[in-house]
Measured scan of single mutants.
Amino acid sequence: QVALSRTQVCGILREELFQGDAFHQSDTHIFIIMGASGDLAKKKIYPTIWWLFRDGLLPENTFIVGYARSRLTVADIRKQSEPFFKATPEEKLKLEDFFARNSYVAGQYDDAASYQRLNSHMNALHLGSQANRLFYLALPPTVYEAVTKNIHESCMSQIGWNRIIVEKPFGRDLQSSDRLSNHISSLFREDQIYRIDHYLGKEMVQNLMVLRFANRIFGPIWNRDNIACVILTFKEPFGTEGRGGYFDEFGIIRDVMQNHLLQMLCLVAMEKPASTNSDDVRDEKVKVLKCISEVQANNVVLGQYVGNPDGEGEATKGYLDDPTVPRGSTTATFAAVVLYVENERWDGVPFILRCGKALNERKAEVRLQFHDVAGDIFHQQCKRNELVIRVQPNEAVYTKMMTKKPGMFFNPEESELDLTYGNRYKNVKLPDAYERLILDVFCGSQMHFVRSDELREAWRIFTPLLHQIELEKPKPIPYIYGSRGPTEADELMKRVGFQYEGTYKWVNPHKL
């Protein structure tokens, strides 16, 4: 086992960053958080920038500027975001240094004079007029057009580079997404736009490419001749908990499936790229999406959770019991969808996408189930092999396979070949997804960000279904809070070829 401390991990990262040409360590950078008073800024962006600063992973002359409508001070920003920093008493001095680099400007999102004030403020910072500028839009999409237009007109660096990070949702359907994309691309070049999907920053999602293309053993079996089906799962054990009003506007397909799960599907299904260059990788992902037809209604199961009468606390409440959810809402909190990649490698292999709230566990994984062994000599005792990439929690890679049961006879039983990170790298604290992705933006690497043509294809696949749901308002199937979801989803999976045995229990190697 390799035991690495946080300091050692960050030392390795620093070495990698400083050796590259793309990370300008000594240049002045300004990180501007648009929507600095909001939840995302408070819980994710400010803490992430602090962790990067604490670990010495930001360029040395980096300033952080918050911008929002609320009249706040840096002290206010500190008060609301610091509880999420997880700072230790030993880091007190470092924390003071961090907040000394912070400033805040209040202004409207659609007022040109406010942006001119913001620009004057940035120019007044040390070497601010020639600094590289990175704008993070932690804002609702309704203000994107006004904000990007004003940034472009008043706040661009004339000497350094300018980059803009856009948070999902990128529209509600193909038409609104196209409108937003066309607007942003009329102001910024594609190499300046970073559409963030934080799932692409997760260690195991990034590991998929290495697993596939750096190991000879997987190449020959990664196709329709050997793989019976692919299941991509995202499960949350909690409901909307008072935030249903926002969720109800989008629903589970827009929230998770059309982005996170579809991105994971691309990494499983794509061909080997010409290189690890950002556009070479994204070219292959677009090719996969172009091979997927629009979702067919007979390959869809929609569910909505109801309270568990035997549960406790939140578990007793259904989705419609959330006071922020519109009365009688038919918005799905669970969806199972089957897609097919219609190309030579994957023809006929079902890709089953499942996601839901208020389920029995927290889990995100990719599961490849292989065909049955031909010419069975073990009297149907063999179960199908599976390769599982567990994204969260407890990152893991393992192969479910058959071995001989101890004893006199040739009785096979299920076991696993474990390729888990935790076994080799004991207690290594890896940077989280937002840390990686923000560092990628500083480096100018777009590999783990969504390109406009990729986004367009993703919406093309799901828009007809979303429009049909909005028009017909089908009643989702009720499922109990804390269950596996509607049984109809299991029946759909069985119908397209997935075999669920229920006889195997994964042993978490992190707890051995």
Score class of each variant (00 low, 15 high):
443 C>M: 11
274 A>R: 14
317 K>D: 14
295 V>D: 05
436 R>D: 03
362 R>N: 06
382 C>A: 15
275 S>N: 08
453 D>F: 00
326 P>G: 06
471 L>H: 15
273 P>H: 01
400 K>L: 03
353 L>M: 10
262 L>P: 04
397 V>K: 00
296 Q>E: 13
397 V>P: 04
453 D>K: 08
302 L>Q: 11
320 L>H: 13
266 C>E: 04
422 G>Y: 13
257 M>R: 03
265 L>Q: 00
255 D>S: 03
327 R>Q: 14
329 S>N: 04
260 H>R: 04
499 Q>R: 10
437 L>G: 00
278 S>V: 08
338 V>A: 15
442 F>N: 07
273 P>R: 03
480 I>S: 13
398 Y>V: 00
286 V>D: 07
337 V>P: 01
378 F>D: 04
428 V>R: 12
291 C>P: 04
506 W>F: 07
378 F>T: 06
343 N>Y: 01
451 R>C: 01
316 T>V: 10
424 R>A: 06
445 S>I: 08
364 A>Q: 06
425 Y>P: 06
358 A>G: 12
500 Y>E: 01
400 K>H: 00
503 T>E: 12
302 L>Y: 08
276 T>K: 13
388 V>K: 03
420 T>W: 05
321 D>C: 09
295 V>T: 10
341 V>H: 02
488 E>G: 10
339 L>V: 13
272 K>R: 13
275 S>V: 05
263 Q>V: 01
327 R>L: 14
424 R>C: 05
378 F>P: 07
405 K>H: 10
325 V>E: 01
295 V>I: 14
302 L>H: 07
338 V>M: 12
411 N>A: 13
498 F>R: 07
277 N>F: 12
346 W>E: 03
424 R>W: 00
382 C>W: 11
254 R>V: 00
435 E>I: 09
472 E>D: 14
288 V>T: 11
262 L>F: 10
492 L>C: 07
349 V>Q: 04
464 P>S: 13
404 K>I: 06
347 D>I: 07
277 N>Y: 13
414 E>F: 12
387 L>I: 06
364 A>D: 04
315 A>H: 11
408 M>C: 05
356 G>K: 02
303 G>T: 03
369 Q>F: 01
492 L>K: 06
456 R>I: 05
367 R>P: 06
377 I>Q: 08
293 S>W: 06
257 M>C: 13
427 N>A: 09
296 Q>H: 15
287 K>Y: 06
316 T>E: 14
408 M>E: 04
451 R>I: 03
420 T>G: 08
319 Y>K: 00
484 R>S: 03
474 P>G: 12
279 D>S: 11
412 P>I: 12
291 C>S: 15
439 L>R: 11
295 V>G: 13
467 H>G: 14
392 Q>H: 07
371 H>A: 11
443 C>Q: 08
307 G>Y: 08
349 V>W: 02
356 G>V: 01
264 M>G: 02
346 W>I: 02
354 R>Q: 03
353 L>D: 04
335 A>R: 04
402 M>V: 11
488 E>I: 10
315 A>V: 15
269 A>L: 06
311 G>W: 09
308 N>M: 11
284 E>I: 05
506 W>T: 04
